[in-house]
């Protein structure tokens, strides 16, 4: 369980958000939504102390991450899988080795087991056979999917996806959505999905956190979101709906 308490972050004079408090329960899928630049990526980086806040706390199973000694923090981080917004693939090694990275160093798996697990993960994201390719040869969407494969390959307890479907075609987006749902159900993983793709939100999430105006301005279940009359969230959803209908018109 992740507990976020009174978190505040600023970069110099730029206050990103303040007083953010909420819980993420084990096994659930929570979507963090909000406009571009509202601080979604910054928020999830705090969960594993890649960034430190001005004030506030994050507890993972009652351990406060910002106060943990570095060795313990690293153990906690190993329980996470993270898909970064720009994929963040290591460009010095092949696609296969990217996915194999967390297994090579932090598990005692043999090379054979690693090969099997990596190939399975690549299969899950529909990228069988690209293992030997260098990451520079991959398209943006493929990179994203390799990033997903790398995040799930060591079967973490928590997965954070930063914009998993942005920049993907609708069909691939759907496949990624399916994949995230499968992961959540089959492996009992807690999923944190940062997105502004409402399709994704409606399809996979159980709860929704809406960041707006420098704060966590709305938090509730998916059902509650569908019927909310909280103005900024309604507007946010309307804008997306408009996009969605526009897209479907274009495709006709």
């Amino acid at each position: 369980m992740i507990k976020i308490r009174n978190l505040q972050k600023s970069f110099g004079d730029n206050l990103v958000w303040s007083d953010v408090s909420f819980d993420i329960h084990d096994g659930e899928t929570i979507a963090i939504i909000g406009r571009s630049g509202c601080g979604k990526s910054v928020l999830i980086k705090h969960f594993i102390a890649l960034l430190y806040p001005d004030q506030g706390e994050v507890f993972i199973d009652d351990k406060e991450v910002f106060e943990l000694p570095y060795t313990e923090l690293r153990k906690i981080r190993q329980r996470f899988g993270v898909l970064f917004q720009g994929s963040a693939l290591f460009d010095s090694v092949s696609t296969f080795d990217n996915v194999a990275f967390p297994l090579r160093y932090f598990t005692s798996q043999t090379e054979e087991e690693i090969r099997e697990n990596v190939n399975n993960a690549l299969k899950m994201v529909n990228l069988e056979g690209v293992g030997p390719k260098s990451t520079a040869e991959l398209s943006g969407g493929m990179r994203k999917r390799v990033g997903v494969a790398r995040a799930i390959v060591h079967e973490p307890d928590y997965i954070m996806y930063d914009e998993p479907t942005s920049g993907l075609d609708p069909q691939t987006s759907d496949e990624i959505n399916e994949l995230m749902m499968d992961m959540a159900e089959n492996l009992d993983i807690t999923s944190i999905v940062v997105t502004h793709d409402m399709h994704s939100v409606l399809k996979i999430s159980e709860r929704v956190a809406f960041l707006d105006q420098g704060a966590l301005s709305w938090l509730g279940s998916l059902e509650e979101m569908k019927h909310t009359d909280y103005k900024p969230l309604v507007n946010f959803m309307k804008a997306s709906e408009y996009q969605i209908t526009n897209k479907s018109k274009e495709s006709v």
Binding site: L50, R74, K75, F84
Partner: peptide, 14 residues
Amino acid sequence: VSEQIDALESMGFN
């Protein structure tokens, strides 16, 4: 700047 260092840290590397 391409977050590869963040990615290493997030996996538990120093």
